[in-house]
């Protein structure tokens, strides 16, 4: 209505509103990047200049900080990265393969108790994992699996949320006629899953792989409970060492170490951000 009677003031008000919105959005973007910018800059400065004040101009102490970091014993960043990489890769592969397998079983076959199995998965989806940590730990202790990577990897096979996602995706993206056709052609059930279903699920698997991997890489609670020898520390556990007193005197090194733990995720994130954002949006509309 106002569009017709007062076109000028309307468009002016709209322009003003849009300006405010853009300013807010830019401010939020700056807020997202600012702490990391300070971290990267401070990684190149020495302790003295860091204490003199905040600055966004890089210093020239990067190499010195790197040398100090390397000389410190017990901060083997490469070992930490390798441990985290190993755990995250194994659990991602297992989680994707077996959760998709379970989803396939639920979608393709009509068996007794199918609905019950699905309802079960929906219910356990809501159970917080950390509440069973004490029972999990004492159980692993009995099995003599404390201080190994097994309890950090094998449980990934049962990821209820992943089964749920893959099931949704399969209902939309896996025509049962193809499965049927493969069956008539003499393909075994298992081979059909490996050669027909998995390739068709590739886009969904790729998105979920990112979330699985990052989720596993970032975990702190479970490894802290289970791992106690320092050569088996994961990346986030290693980060917690940076708080200890021996680093108090040299903040440049702390920032460099932090930057090194963050950098791989930055690269992965900005390379795959399109898929990640799409995956997040998909997660919300699942209900």
């Amino acid at each position: 209505m106002s569009k017709r009677t007062e076109p000028k003031s309307y468009s002016k008000a709209l322009a003003a509103e849009k300006t405010v919105i853009y300013i807010v959005c830019i401010a939020l973007c700056v807020l997202s990047i600012f702490p990391f910018a300070v971290m990267f800059v401070n990684a190149t400065r020495d302790n003295y200049s860091i204490q003199q004040g905040m600055s966004l101009i890089p210093g020239d102490m990067l190499l010195t900080n790197w040398q100090t970091l390397n000389e410190r014993q017990n901060f083997d960043i490469l070992q930490g990265m390798w441990n985290s990489m190993f755990i995250a890769t194994c659990s991602t592969v297992l989680a994707l393969y077996f959760s998709t397998l379970a989803a396939y079983g639920l979608v393709v076959y009509r068996f007794k108790g199918r609905q019950l199995a699905f309802t079960f998965i929906m219910v356990v989806l809501m159970i917080p994992t950390q509440v069973s940590a004490v029972g999990f730990f004492t159980f692993m202790y009995k099995l003599n699996l404390v201080n190994t990577f097994i309890p950090l990897i094998i449980p990934a096979i049962a990821s209820p949320s992943l089964v749920f996602f893959m099931r949704q995706y399969m209902i939309a993206g896996l025509p049962l006629e193809i499965v049927e056709a493969a069956r008539i052609d003499g393909s075994s059930e298992f081979a059909t899953y490996n050669t027909i279903c998995l390739p068709l699920m590739k886009p969904a698997l790729a998105t979920q792989a990112i979330f699985c991997f990052v989720g596993s890489w970032n975990r702190l609670f479970e490894p802290t409970m289970l791992i106690n020898s320092q050569d088996k520390y994961t990346m986030p556990m290693l980060v917690s060492l940076l708080k200890s007193d021996r680093f108090r005197t040299d903040y440049g090194t702390v920032y460099l170490a932090l930057a090194l733990t963050v950098l791989p995720l930055f690269i992965v994130y900005f390379a795959l951000s399109k898929y990640i954002i799409a995956g997040v949006a998909l997660g919300g509309v699942k209900e």
Partner: peptide
Amino acid sequence: VMVYMPNIITAASISVL
């Protein structure tokens, strides 16, 4: 992309930062 970014970074690293 910008405002989601902190979500993917290790919470432990962010906290120590």
